[in-house]
Design a protein around this nucleic acid. Structure first.
Lengths: 157, 157
DNA sequence: CCAGATGGTTGTACAGATATAACATTTCGC
DNA sequence: GCGAAATGTTATATCTGTACAACCATCTGG
């Protein structure tokens, strides 16, 4: 099924395939649990939309601009939307006074999108809601919390 | 900010607030990492939609029916959609031959929605895609995997 | 039996998202 | 300079999802 098990089988390994299967099962269960945790138990998207009074993709847009200004094209790619829709989203955010378009100093084809102070505040508000750990995580004891932190860091590479 | 820190402060605890703040910071970082992992790095919704040729809510509908048949109302509640839209979704899935409506034996107001064999296969296909652990998880060594499994179980209560 | 509650459907309206083609402007390689 | 490519916008169409009002059938409690 995967590299490791075939290699083991190929050299007539002493470790039976059962272990590999058990590992896969644990991995599947853990992953499924992580999905349940993030997507079912503690999905805060609705809360963010209500708090900011905008669709989730607009909130996501603001959050992606916190790191710095982007060209329209980069903006569209980051949000996995196509350029025409990016124009609509930025139009809307601009009407709300949350972002502004400015010309690129050297390439006059490009338009840089950046956050206004109000946009920055809105983005931070969204981050605060999304990143607030659920009680289950916050209430872990110090050892478990450290273990989780280490594992997450490892998983993110 | 939370029960523990106030209690500590109240009895003039020897443990300084800094520890509580550090804990909160670790929890926030871990939670943020979990969100990144599930939502940004390994979001398989698109893949499921492409594989099944339907919108994600329809795939979600099929998955919720695997456990057994539901009334239209239960179905709508499980998917967090309103009854009229539930009708549209079931209509569509029925046209595709993936679900069927049958009368309730005793209450003739109710209509039970259940999976057809084809619907069951589609639902299982979706589960397989969604629950396939990403390489980062599958490649953890046995100890880390066990630790993750234990933590996830704990977090899910 | 009758009034009210429940379950499901139909219809309508609208916001959100996605895809495509067409267009003007600007840049860049030749 | 000129044609090709890149960038952003406009327009159009379609699909998806959300919300609300109205309706019919059925059940429940009196």
């Amino acid at each position: 099924m995967n590299r490791k098990s075939t290699a083991t089988a190929a050299r007539g390994g002493t470790v039976p395939d059962v272990d590999e299967a058990a590992r896969a099962e644990i991995a599947a269960r853990a992953w499924q649990g992580l999905r349940t945790l993030v997507l079912d138990r503690h999905d805060r998207r609705r809360e963010v939309c209500d708090a900011l009074g905008m669709s989730f993709i607009r909130a996501k847009a603001l959050r992606h601009l916190v790191a710095g200004e982007l060209t329209m094209r980069q903006f569209a790619e980051r949000l996995a939307i196509d350029p025409p829709y990016a124009t609509l989203v930025v139009d809307d955010l601009q009407r709300r006074g949350l972002v502004l378009r400015s010309p690129h100093p050297s390439d006059r084809r490009l338009r840089m999108v950046s956050l206004t102070p109000a946009g920055t505040r809105a983005a931070e508000s969204a981050e605060r809601i999304l990143n607030r750990p659920p009680a289950a995580v916050a209430d872990l004891d110090a050892a478990d919390l450290a273990a989780l932190d280490r594992l997450v860091a490892k998983l993110l590479g």
